[in-house]
């Protein structure tokens, strides 16, 4: 095999290997915690009120807890150490000396991070919606499933950048990127927010929940009125751009022997 097919085959191999690495008791425990945490919060809120949770309120809480918090934390743990882990384990040399190994590492880790975190996010959504006892639970589950997938795809690609630029400080750099790009630039009513995943996710939530007409004019500035397919396509394009840049950077990076192992 040569070219793109070989790279994709190698990326699949990396993804499988990374997923196997993630299957440790500690990681599985954290994943279970990530799945249960939103359900526990919604259950606690529900207990403090009478009857089932109001759908809009539940959706806001669920949005903050799952596509934002759980997915973000899951990706910080799975995507950020993409290169740092290889350097620390001394496996970087095996990757760097294989044809297309560096590309495969970025793509494979991306696939593994998205698969793992999406699974955790979907589990969290399912449990939380059922715990919240909201009306039309399956509609909410479908909507949040889409948001979880888009959140994971867009942000895993975004975190690939600090992972390759600053491997030894990838976690700190990624938190910085999340705060500055996603939560600062993403809420600026300016062109810069078009390049953020948070704008797309927020706009989709507003669109699917039918909130736009009821929103005050000031809040309309922080959502994008364009149709659903544009929001989804924007996330995919952003992911492709972030991953391409990350691959280009990693293909040129050199790590002196002292940085390995």
């Amino acid at each position: 095999m040569t070219g793109l097919r070989a790279t994709l085959a190698a990326a699949r191999a990396v993804a499988g290997f990374q997923l196997a690495r993630l299957c440790t008791p500690a990681r599985l425990g954290l994943a279970a915690l990530g799945m249960l945490f939103p359900a526990v919060v919604l259950l606690a809120i529900r207990r403090s009120t009478t009857g089932p949770l109001e759908r809009s309120f539940g959706a806001v809480v669920l949005y903050a807890l799952v596509p934002e918090a759980v997915c973000m934390l899951g990706l910080l743990m799975t995507m950020c150490p993409a290169v740092a882990d290889e350097l620390e384990r001394g496996t970087w040399v095996h990757v760097a000396t294989r044809p297309g190994g560096r590309r495969a590492l970025v793509l494979g880790t991306f696939i593994a991070a998205v698969t793992w975190t999406t699974a955790v996010g979907l589990g969290a959504v399912l449990l939380a919606v059922l715990a919240g006892g909201m009306t039309d639970p399956w509609g909410l589950i479908a909507m949040f499933a889409a948001l979880v997938v888009l959140s994971c795809v867009g942000r895993a690609a975004l975190f690939a950048l600090p992972a390759v630029v600053l491997p030894s400080r990838a976690l700190v750099a990624s938190v910085g990127v999340a705060v500055v790009v996603e939560y600062l630039a993403g809420f600026l009513p300016a062109v810069i927010n078009q390049a953020t995943v948070s704008l797309r996710l927020r706009s989709l939530l507003v669109h699917w929940m039918g909130w736009r007409q009821r929103m005050p004019p000031q809040l309309r500035l922080i959502v994008d009125p364009q149709p659903v397919w544009v929001q989804c396509a924007a996330v995919v394009v952003l992911a492709i751009v972030f991953l391409t840049v990350a691959i280009m950077i990693l293909e040129r990076r050199q790590f002196p022997p002292s940085e390995e192992g």
Partner: peptide
């Protein structure tokens, strides 16, 4: 945790083999 077979298979797949 990986077995010798899994490790070698992984490296060969990284070289672009099915």
């Amino acid at each position: 945790r990986a077995t010798a077979l899994e490790w070698v298979r992984y490296l060969v797949r990284l070289s672009g083999f099915t």
